[in-house]
Design a protein around this nucleic acid. Structure first.
Lengths: 334, 334
DNA sequence: TTGAAAGCGCTAACAC
DNA sequence: GTGTTAGCGCTTTCAA
């Protein structure tokens, strides 16, 4: 069926060892020999068998990327960057979605049978806590997003407290006094949300402002629909509001829609800030002011760390912080 | 290092054959034996070696999905659906992006060394024509989007002519006379674009309307930015326009933004229709009327066909047509 | 610089 | 119902 090393070797009149050397660009193969082997390879259309190679070397050349859902723009953009960097590093990406399902996330961590076929794992968990991460995983792991405390996985993240503080300060600097917050979470795993809330409260306190309970809407689902509903709820409660900070952009997009439906002007009546800087926010009406985490750096560093660990370099368990910007657009320029 | 079948067999006091039977839920293993083996498996933390299994069976359990770019919402939503269906069928998805690069698309088709590790390929080509698809590919291929003429790959698509016709008829039924079209392509591979243009012209002709050249803006890049620019261009040319049909939703989102910047009211002054029904269009201002291809069916059928072919069932080379709807939203309700 | 051969871990044909 | 064993295609140690 498929052409094997042996067949190539026979045609070229050399041993399989030599063919292998040519294929892997090893050692010093005599130019003449190399040419003869290459001719045989081309003539037969030989392709190395990846499974056999993996069995022998213990490497698959595959990295697994596990995200909650690909249709969330932030994760789609992240996945794009991870695939790009992995490809550049000679790896292929295996993709999995957890739908924020705890069992799915645990399964993936546990190296389930079908999943063993990768050399390392990049995981953006939603439901896991650091207690769930095995102390001695069979393969290197890089965690994104949530803070992981003291374990063997590397962790790439931004300073969520500082970012939320900057976002809130921006609203305050525009003279806003009644800042609503959408996206806090009271579940144990909602670490990012907790940190963003912390940064928000810090900025408010520094400005001598307080957060009215009617203006704080929790949300465990970071979707447009959730942001839309949360914004409507806030408006319905009737408490004065002149600014909204949403913990991600998709919720902010939903909030913009709710405000428009209620004929509330943005940014004149209510200023809106999001988080993530998804491309959609550049084209919303009005365009969206947001926190821009350096997604490309997150992806690049995650791949770099993983490849290093796979190659036996680097210890693991490191915390790597990536930068962020505030991007000012129309939704706060009033 | 890793625990092997043999070690499990020794601990359980049986042969590897029996352990293999237990692991693969084969044959009739005596309940008592099964229990003893299972105990040994658990005690040792045994995990089957996927590479060895693949080498033996010739199957990897991996499907490759190749799309132009994951950060385009349509492809992200499609990828999500493909991953979901593949997982349900017991397969894992390997993801690749071509960035609409012809060489990358050809590489993937050619089973490049690193890429051989999948059992089948789902490909949404942008630059390839049917001539590029090998007549006898080493693995089953399902093509999405572009029409493939007479080759061994299955092809899942919607009726682009009919869909574009429905979209245009909808605009005409709203009394619009000056329909602009954004997204035609004059490149050889722009098959979908060509069919959509055909459907549009058909509808216009049926209504006794003609398409003014100033209202036809080609675009090879289906992005928000491209739609934005194309819309500005149309407005700048000064020809009367009261409707726009964009060949995808992201361009329509860009067009909405351009119209808003120029203070053109949607739908009162200009009605807008998109294509794809990405979630973003439900939350744009105004929300976007669009053609909704049955994405879930596309993904489901693509996976089904591929799995069937991998299992030796089904011949390949089939054309499978999937349905579509017109979804009416605010952008045409004036 | 090249050849011969062992063996990675598993499945499945063949025995019993 | 279970044991024995060949061999999938490759990399790599040991020899020459």
């Amino acid at each position: 069926m498929a052409v094997t090393l042996k067949e190539v070797a026979e045609l070229a009149g050399v041993s399989v060892r030599t063919v292998s050397n040519v294929v892997n660009e090893f050692h010093h193969v005599a130019p003449e020999t190399r040419a003869r082997v290459q001719t045989a390879i081309d003539a037969l259309g030989y392709r190395p068998n990846a499974a056999a190679r993996s069995l022998r070397t213990g490497r698959t050349g595959l990295l697994a990327l596990v995200v909650p859902a690909l249709d969330q723009p932030y994760f789609a953009e992240l996945a794009r960057a991870v695939v790009r960097h992995a490809t550049a590093a000679g790896y292929t990406v295996v993709l999995d979605q957890t739908d924020a399902d705890r069992d799915r996330e645990l399964d993936l961590l546990a190296d389930q049978p079908r999943r063993t076929m990768f050399d390392g794992l990049i995981l953006n968990p939603l439901t896991l806590t650091s207690a769930d991460i095995p102390a001695r995983p069979t393969r290197p792991i890089v965690l994104l997003g949530e803070r992981a405390i003291a374990n063997s996985a590397d962790h790439v993240h931004i300073d969520n407290v500082a970012a939320a503080r900057v976002a809130t300060q921006h609203l305050i600097s525009r003279g806003r006094k009644h800042v609503a917050v959408i996206g806090s979470q009271d579940i144990p795993s909602g670490q990012s949300a907790r940190l963003r809330l912390q940064g928000t409260m810090l900025a408010l306190a520094e400005a001598g402002l307080t957060a009215h309970p009617d203006l704080m809407r929790p949300s465990n689902s970071y979707t447009r629909q959730a942001g839309y509903q949360a914004m409507l709820d806030i408006l319905d409660l009737g408490h004065p509001v002149d600014a909204v900070f949403c913990f991600n952009d998709t919720m902010a997009i939903g909030a913009l829609r709710a405000l428009r439906e209620r004929s509330v002007r943005v940014p004149e009546d209510v200023a809106v800030v999001g988080f993530d800087d998804i491309e959609e926010g550049q084209f919303s009406s009005p365009s969206l002011t947001t926190i821009r985490p350096d997604k490309d750096a997150i992806a690049r560093i995650a791949v770099e760390r993983l490849v290093a660990r796979i190659s036996g370099r680097g210890g693991g368990g490191e915390e790597i912080e990536v930068g962020f910007d505030l991007v000012e657009r129309q939704s706060t320029q009033g």
